[in-house]
Design a binder for these strands. Structure first.
Lengths: 130, 130
DNA sequence: CCTTGACCTTCCAGTAACTGGAAACCTTAT
DNA sequence: ATAAGGTTTCCAGTTACTGGAAGGTCAAGG
């Protein structure tokens, strides 16, 4: 398969596939005589894996780690779980932070009448801090 | 005040202050004869504003907009409120997305026993998609 | 055989918002 | 005079791509 077909099938753009190759997240693709990259079903599978893991917010470095664990039939499942749980913790933190910010912004927005008049507690609060 | 003192007082690093100047988020500072930047209380105030707005997740571009509204005594409060509300929407989306990801990751983690044994549904799921 | 259009190649630059580090200058105290 | 610590500029690196230019390739149609 050419890179474009793979892109269509996996939802990973051709640009990204080349990029993943350039940073060695995936091994260099085979080439035709004219230099076109050729992909196997296994490559497609790997790109699906990457796509899904990235969609779950794993960084490329984490994906690399997960891929190497994926390829190692003898790794302990605990290693994989640890990565996922670290990621879960990040997410908990991020959610908590965003919720707190949301609360602050809501309060700010609610206190501003939001019309043509100039006075606006939002800016006063931003300036005054707290 | 020297840049270091301002940094200590506002919590914005000297590096960031210079960066903000370089992108014209803040006007160029006055200089001493020897070239050191000098800041007034008003500058410190502005940096507090920036610090707080950035902490609330506004992008630098949004902060620039808020600052210019802040400086314009005649702007409509509605303009400011609109920015805050747009930001609130982003946050709602992000929270919803993170919650969904959290759910998926929890399910994955729960189904993996996470010990020395090699078999691990996490990787199978990542590979299988869905 | 030639052209057209879609696809592919490489390479360079840009994104957001800084951060790190080097080399050199200034200030203050001893 | 010297040492420590603050400051200056400038360049590079970070993350994960994306856009775009210049040019080679492939398949179909005339």
């Amino acid at each position: 398969m050419n890179i474009g077909e793979v892109a269509a099938e996996t939802g990973v753009t051709a640009k990204s596939i080349r990029y993943y190759e350039s940073i060695n997240l995936i091994p260099p693709a085979e080439r035709t005589d004219s230099g076109y990259r050729q992909y196997s079903d296994r490559d497609v599978q790997t790109l699906h894996f990457i796509k899904r893991a990235r969609g779950l917010g794993f960084t490329v470095a984490e994906v690399a780690e997960l891929l190497s664990l994926y390829r190692d039939q003898d790794r302990a499942s605990g290693e994989v779980k640890a990565i996922v749980e670290a990621r879960l913790e990040d997410i908990e933190h991020k959610i908590a932070e965003l919720e707190s910010i949301r609360g602050t912004l809501r309060t700010l927005a609610d206190r501003c009448h939001g019309d043509d008049r100039p006075d606006c507690p939002i800016l006063d609060d931003l300036a005054g801090g707290n």
